[in-house]
């Protein structure tokens, strides 16, 4: 707890990227998490008498109302739940699978390495959106399927990243000595190797949460989304495109919500990359 350790950190806080990113992403996430307290039930209430009210006219509807007379502000805040769920859960899934695969293939090499890497090659050779459309035509839309789809398409990135790091680390002194004194493999993998390569993984995770929020909206735009009764940013944006010219607020506010959240995450990711991954492995 000496002063000297605090000063350089404090300097980092002055970094514009970090401040902006933390404010945007953190603020949006907090608002979304507490949306049910801020707007209890407000996002679902339909009022056909109050359709498409413009924003900043009535104080009860500061962002106006949508084609069904629902409050746009409440829907934007509540709608973040789906987007953030898709973003975070899919990344979590992809990380778990990808990291384990990457550790195994990089550490053991040989047969398993070949299997995992050929899997990865196959995965990388498939054009994502087309595969997504086909998958959803087979399995149907909805939250779960969308998350599965994103996991399947993204674990490879982590596997490759981790494998590369393991290859570079596995012959280093501390690993060799750990093996020499008979430390079990799984302990070497998770206690010795993992902490040393987690930096780039975290960077990639942050960036992928951002990517996935955008992908969710793209897939919804193509008509492959979730229950329209549950507000989601992608869904509001996709439905709102009909009203873009005569009621801009219906799609501009959810659009801004996506833009700001994703920008916040990207800024954080970019900043993290400079701090945790100075070699730039994740910049590809």
């Amino acid at each position: 707890m000496s002063v000297t350790t605090i000063t350089p950190r404090f300097a980092r806080f002055r970094n514009l990227e970090f401040i902006l990113g933390a404010l945007l992403a953190g603020g949006m996430c907090l608002a979304v998490i507490f949306s049910s307290i801020i707007f209890p039930g407000g996002a679902e209430k339909i009022d056909l008498m109050a359709r498409l009210l413009p924003p900043f006219v009535k104080w009860t509807h500061p962002f106006g109302t949508d084609p069904l007379g629902r409050d746009v502000l409440a829907r934007v805040i509540t709608g973040g739940k789906i987007s953030l769920q898709v973003g975070f859960i899919s990344v979590a899934g992809a990380v778990v699978i990808g990291v384990v695969m990457g550790l195994i293939s990089g550490y053991y090499r040989g047969f398993w390495d070949m299997v995992v890497m050929r899997f990865a090659d196959v995965q990388l050779a498939m054009p994502f959106i087309l595969l997504a459309i086909t998958f959803i035509a087979i399995a149907g839309g909805g939250l779960t399927n969308m998350i599965i789809l994103l996991i399947v398409s993204q674990w490879v990135q982590y596997a490759r990243l981790v494998r590369g790091s393991v290859l570079a680390l596995r012959d280093r002194e501390f690993i060799l000595s750990a093996r020499a004194i008979g430390v079990r493999d799984h302990r070497i993998l998770f206690q010795h190797l993992l902490p040393n390569l987690i930096g780039p993984v975290i960077v990639l995770m942050t960036l992928n949460v951002a990517t996935n929020i955008l992908l969710e909206s793209s897939l919804t735009f193509l008509g492959l989304g979730v229950d329209p009764l549950i507000p989601s940013w992608g869904g509001m944006l996709a439905d709102g495109r009909t009203y873009l010219q005569n009621a801009w607020w219906v799609s501009v506010f959810p659009g801004l919500a996506i833009l700001l959240t994703v920008l916040g995450l990207n800024l954080l990711g970019d900043w993290l990359r400079d701090s945790l991954d100075p070699t730039g492995r994740t910049s590809r």
Binding site: E17, F221, L237, A238, R241, S251, G255, L259, V262
Partner: peptide
């Protein structure tokens, strides 16, 4: 700083919305 932040703004647009 500004250039990096601006270029990230471009990356953060839902592309169909930007297109519209």
């Amino acid at each position: 700083q500004l250039i990096r932040i601006l270029s990230l703004v471009g990356l953060s647009f839902p592309n169909f919305w930007l297109a519209l």
